[in-house]
Simulated scan of single mutants.
Amino acid sequence: MNTLIGRSTTALALCIASAAGAQAEDFNLDALIEAARAEPPLAVFDSTGKITTMAENFSAKYGVEAVGQKVKAHAQLEMMAREAQAGNVQGDVSIISDAPAAIAELLPNGFAVSWVPPDLADVIVPGYRDPLVVVTMANVWTYNTELYDSCPVSNLWEMTQSEWRGKVAMQDPLNKSVYTDWFNQMQTYGDDALAEAYKEFFGQEIDRSSRSATEQWVAMLAANAPLLGGSDSNAAEAVGAPGQSEGFMGLMSSAKYRDNADSDFKLGLCADIKPWIGFTNAGVGLIAAGSDSPNAAKLFIHYVMTAEGIAPQADDGKRSANTQVDLPADEPSGIGAVWDRLLTYEMASAADDYETRQDWQDFWRVHYDR
Rank of each mutant, 00 (worst) to 15 (best):
L299G: 02
A225T: 11
G309M: 13
K318F: 15
K298L: 06
F265S: 07
A297R: 04
A223L: 09
D272P: 01
A329V: 09
Q324T: 15
L221V: 15
M249S: 03
P226M: 07
D259I: 10
A261F: 11
M220Q: 14
S231L: 08
G250L: 06
R258Y: 03
A307M: 07
A223C: 08
G283V: 01
S233A: 15
F265I: 05
E246R: 14
N322R: 08
C270S: 07
V239A: 01
S293Q: 03
A255I: 03
E237H: 11
A236H: 12
G290N: 03
T280F: 00
N260Q: 12
D264W: 10
S263L: 15
L227T: 15
S320I: 12
V218H: 10
A271Q: 13
G240D: 06
C270Q: 03
D232C: 00
A282N: 15
V239G: 01
L327W: 06
S245W: 03
A255R: 01
S291I: 02
G268T: 01
F248L: 09
N234F: 15
D232A: 00
V239T: 05
A296L: 01
S291E: 03
N260G: 11
I273E: 02
K256E: 15
D262I: 13
T280L: 05
V284A: 08
S245E: 15
E246T: 15
M305Q: 15
A329S: 12
A288H: 12
G250I: 02
F248K: 03
L251R: 00
A235Q: 05
I310W: 07
Y257S: 07
G278Q: 07
G268D: 08
D272T: 14
S263W: 11
I277E: 03
P312R: 07
A282I: 13
A296T: 01
M249K: 04
P275H: 08
I301K: 01
N224S: 12
D315W: 11
A261G: 13
Y303A: 02
G229M: 04
R258G: 10
P275F: 05
D272V: 05
P328C: 02
T323S: 14
G309H: 11
G268Y: 00
W276C: 10
N281F: 14
F300I: 10
I277K: 04
V218A: 14
I273N: 01
L267Q: 10
L221T: 13
G317R: 03
N281Q: 10
P226S: 11
N234S: 14
A219H: 08
D232K: 01
S233R: 13
D232G: 08
S254H: 09
A241D: 12
D315I: 13
G247F: 10
V284L: 13
V239Y: 00
L267R: 05
G278P: 06
Y257I: 04
L299Y: 01
S263D: 14
D292P: 00
D292M: 04
V218Q: 11
M220Y: 06
S254V: 12
M252G: 02
A238D: 05
P226E: 10
T323E: 15
Y257K: 04
N260P: 11
K318V: 11
L269M: 08
R258M: 09
S231N: 10
P294Q: 04
G243Q: 08
A241G: 09
I287P: 05
S291Y: 00
L327T: 06
A289P: 09
S263P: 00
V284W: 04
A261C: 09
N322F: 09
A271D: 14
G285S: 12
H302W: 15
